[in-house]
Amino acid sequence: MTASSCYRGRFAPTPSGPLHFGSLVAALGSYLDARAVGGEWLVRIEDIDPPRCPQGADTTILRQLEAFGLHWDKEIVWQHGRHAAYQQALEQLAAQGLAYPCSCSRKQWQDYAIYPGWCRDGLNASGKPVAWRLRSDLAKRPITWQDRLFGHQQFDPAEMGDVVLKRKDNLWAYQLAVVVDDAEQGITDVVRGLDLLDNTPWQRQLQIALKLPEPRYLHLPLVVTSQGQKLSKQNLAPSLAGDDRGIRRQLFQALQALDQSPPPELATELPESQLHWAVVNWSVERLSPAEHRLSP
């Protein structure tokens, strides 16, 4: 892709806690991919699950991004204010017969690998709270796309189950919200961790059903601990450094995790200098599909 402001990428963290090193690698990868072609880079706060989002976590994340020199374009979008847009999309899907209410509990179908679709033709039990699911067997299938690192991908979402679009507690599910918001913000390229690759088939089904643009995808290799465990807030991954020296060191390490081979002398440079080098030298071709294992 030649330099163009038509590129628009994004980083969309869930504010369930401060960013960790794995988050930094994902943010940095999406930032560099956008800036290297003169594109825009947006930040969206995916706070549709309030019980998981402690007060002030979003502010902490934004301060961390700024400390690492990752400055965004345009106003930040918070998902908690987007209810009407999600509801409209759900109604569109229901009108097409692609979304249905489901009263089943996880306990009821725990012996099955995926939800068996018991409510597809009517509620299995009336008078109970309902979730809304995507009718993955009727939506476009199979789903194929070309991942910019992992190559040709093909999935049949019907073999993955009817994903939840709206929960029984009336909170919106990730799959629907991310599709609606990416389209609303004009996102052309999604750069994110490999752990979300198998979410893409449902998201592409939704994009097609709602007649929304289909962005390009680049899934980045995961960062794992020395024991091979994925870095995550659930696994108590430590927060990013807050001191100047630590920020410089971790930014350099993130460039290494992205296989960009930064020169050793860059490790002590200010974030602005490191990012300038990284934007000029960004290369998706250097990325290895292998996970990046942290030293003990």
Results as ranks from 00 to 15, higher is better:
Cys6Lys: 15
Ala95Ile: 15
Gly228Thr: 03
Asp58Pro: 13
Leu294Cys: 11
Asp121Tyr: 10
Phe21Gly: 10
Leu90Thr: 11
Arg106Leu: 00
Arg286Trp: 04
Ile187Thr: 01
Leu212Val: 13
Val130His: 05
Pro129Leu: 11
Leu28Ile: 09
Leu231Met: 12
Tyr7Pro: 09
Ala290Gln: 14
Arg204Asn: 11
Arg286Ile: 07
Leu258Ile: 03
Asp169His: 15
Lys128Cys: 10
Ile114Val: 01
Glu272Val: 03
Val224Cys: 12
Gln153Thr: 10
His71Gln: 13
Tyr115Thr: 02
Ala290Phe: 06
Pro15Thr: 10
Pro215Gly: 02
Arg135Trp: 13
Leu176Ile: 10
Asn124Tyr: 13
Ala131Asn: 05
Glu159Thr: 12
Leu240Val: 09
Cys104Ser: 08
Gly38Glu: 13
Leu93Trp: 09
Gln146Thr: 12
Glu272Lys: 12
Asp198Glu: 09
Glu40Ser: 15
Gln175Pro: 00
Val190Tyr: 02
Asn235Ile: 06
His219Asp: 08
Gly39Asp: 02
Gln203Arg: 00
Ile143Lys: 00
Gly127Trp: 15
Leu212Pro: 01
Gln260Thr: 01
Thr60Arg: 14
Ser16Asp: 04
Leu240Thr: 04
Lys211His: 05
Ala177Ile: 10
Arg293Lys: 13
Asn124Asp: 04
Lys74Phe: 08
Ala209Leu: 02
Gly29Glu: 04
Leu32Ala: 06
Trp132Arg: 04
Ala125Met: 05
Ser105Asp: 12
Gln250Met: 05
Gln205Arg: 07
Lys140Met: 02
Ala85Tyr: 06
Leu32Gly: 03
Ala34Phe: 08
Thr144Phe: 10
Lys168Trp: 08
Ala278Met: 03
Asp195Gln: 07
Ala26Asp: 09
Val37Ala: 09
Cys104Asn: 06
Val130Ala: 00
Leu196Lys: 15
Ile76Ser: 10
Leu236Gly: 10
Ala125Cys: 10
Gln110Ile: 13
Gly69Val: 07
Lys140Asp: 15
Arg63Gly: 03
Leu210Gly: 09
Ile208Ala: 11
Val163Asp: 05
Lys128Phe: 08
Leu123Tyr: 12
Leu32Trp: 01
Val178Met: 00
Ala173Trp: 10
Glu159Val: 12
Trp78Ile: 07
Glu75Gln: 13
Trp78Arg: 08
Gln87Arg: 09
Ser136Ala: 15
Trp78Lys: 11
Val284Phe: 12
Asp156Thr: 13
Val279Met: 09
Leu222Tyr: 06
Leu28Asp: 00
Thr188Arg: 03
Met1Ser: 11
Asp181Gly: 07
Gly38Arg: 06
Ser273Pro: 14
Cys102Phe: 05
Glu285Thr: 04
Asp189Glu: 11
Gln227Val: 06
Leu134Asp: 00
Glu265Arg: 01
Pro213Asp: 08
Pro50Ser: 11
Val130Gln: 07
Asp198Tyr: 03
Pro157Phe: 08
Leu212Asp: 01
Ala84Met: 11
Tyr217Cys: 01
Leu240Met: 11
Arg135Ser: 14
Thr188Tyr: 01
Ser5Gly: 05
Ser232Gly: 04
Glu265Pro: 07
Ala67His: 08
Arg248Met: 03
